[in-house]
């Protein structure tokens, strides 16, 4: 599943970030910002038009990502909501 496919409010765990092209600077920046395997993320809000951009919470940080950026991140849905 892709981060861009998460339903609103859903929590998930990052699997990996895929490069959209060779040496993708956006993918590299996402990794630097903490989108790495095992990191919990949550979809907090969506933009008013076309549900874009997405507001993703990772750790204590909220990042606004466009759908195309979020689509680089592969995630697993969290089965059980941990507190």
């Amino acid at each position: 599943m892709r981060l861009s496919d998460l339903p609103k409010g859903a929590a998930a765990v990052v699997d990996r970030v895929d490069d959209a092209q060779a040496n993708d600077p956006i993918a590299q920046r996402l990794r630097d910002l903490g989108f790495v395997a095992g990191e919990p993320v949550r979809l907090v809000a969506q933009g008013p038009l076309g549900a874009d951009p997405l507001l993703i919470q990772i750790g204590s940080t909220r990042f606004a990502l466009r759908r195309s950026e979020a689509a680089r991140v592969a995630v697993r849905l969290k089965e059980q909501e941990a507190a």
Binding site: I26, L30, A64, R66
Partner: peptide, 9 residues
């Protein structure tokens, strides 16, 4: 080509 947003709130 694609533009990035990647903005912290």
């Amino acid at each position: 080509s694609e533009h990035a947003l990647l903005m912290e709130l």
